[in-house]
Amino acid sequence: MANQGAKKRRDENTRHMNNLYRIIIVSNVIYLLLRAGFFYSTFTWLHWIGLIITSSAYYLCYKQLASMAKPAYTDDGDLLDGGFDMSTGGVSEYLHDIIYITCFVQLTSIISGKFWWIYAVIPGFAVYKGWGLIKAFLPQGSEGVEEDEKTRKKREKMEKKASRGKFVKAKGR
């Protein structure tokens, strides 16, 4: 049973992507039926823009996840790799979060247009994560800080100790 793990991951990814597809379709159908069908008198061009934005977010995230989950085959047609493991974190997790936030925003915007403000969480989180990366490249502001005598002596002692190197005792025979 070679490649049993790859087959299992391929099947899990297929099942997972089908579930995501169903969630996206159900969210869009509910939005269109309720917002455009039932509340048609309040359905304006802004709602069409909102539908285009959410559909674009769904499309881009789903396509990226689908390309990550796609299994790889050899020239003979044998399964080589089952695709990316969707249960791991990283980009896959962020794409799932965007899909779920989009679903929530789309369905709750049926009740009130103020729920669109929840979409601000996505760029806010991106700025938060990006700031940590940018902060690593900025120079640290410790050059202008004066250190007292005790701290200076302790630092010099530690530097001297580190420069000596470590000696290892050999066991005599």
Rank of each mutant, 00 (worst) to 15 (best):
L133P: 09
D148E: 08
Y119W: 09
A36W: 13
D75Q: 08
R155D: 03
K166T: 05
A66M: 02
H96C: 03
L133E: 01
K161W: 12
I24S: 02
S87M: 14
D11E: 04
K166I: 15
R9D: 05
S41T: 11
V105S: 05
I122M: 03
T42E: 14
K150G: 07
F167W: 07
K153F: 01
L79M: 02
G113M: 13
Y100T: 09
I101K: 02
M17K: 00
G113E: 08
E12G: 07
Y21C: 10
G37V: 12
E12N: 09
K70L: 00
F125A: 11
K135F: 13
V26M: 01
P139N: 02
G141L: 14
C61R: 00
L95F: 02
K154C: 01
I52L: 15
G37R: 03
V168W: 05
I25N: 03
V168A: 02
V145S: 05
T42P: 04
E12R: 05
V91I: 02
L32N: 02
E147Q: 14
W48A: 02
G130E: 01
T88M: 15
G37Y: 09
V145I: 15
P139I: 07
S163I: 09
L34P: 12
D85I: 06
K166L: 02
Q64F: 05
I101M: 07
F43Y: 08
L80C: 00
S56W: 13
Y100G: 02
E143L: 07
G5M: 11
Q4H: 09
R35H: 13
W131E: 04
L80I: 14
L60Q: 04
K153N: 03
W117Y: 11
D85H: 10
P123Y: 13
L107F: 08
F39S: 15
A136Q: 07
G130P: 11
K153L: 07
F167M: 04
G37T: 04
W45T: 03
R22K: 03
I101P: 01
K169E: 04
K8P: 07
M86S: 12
I122C: 00
Y94T: 09
E146D: 11
I30Q: 00
F39Y: 12
I30G: 03
F137Q: 06
P139L: 00
K160H: 06
K160N: 04
Q64P: 10
L65E: 03
Q106G: 12
T108W: 13
D81L: 06
G37I: 14
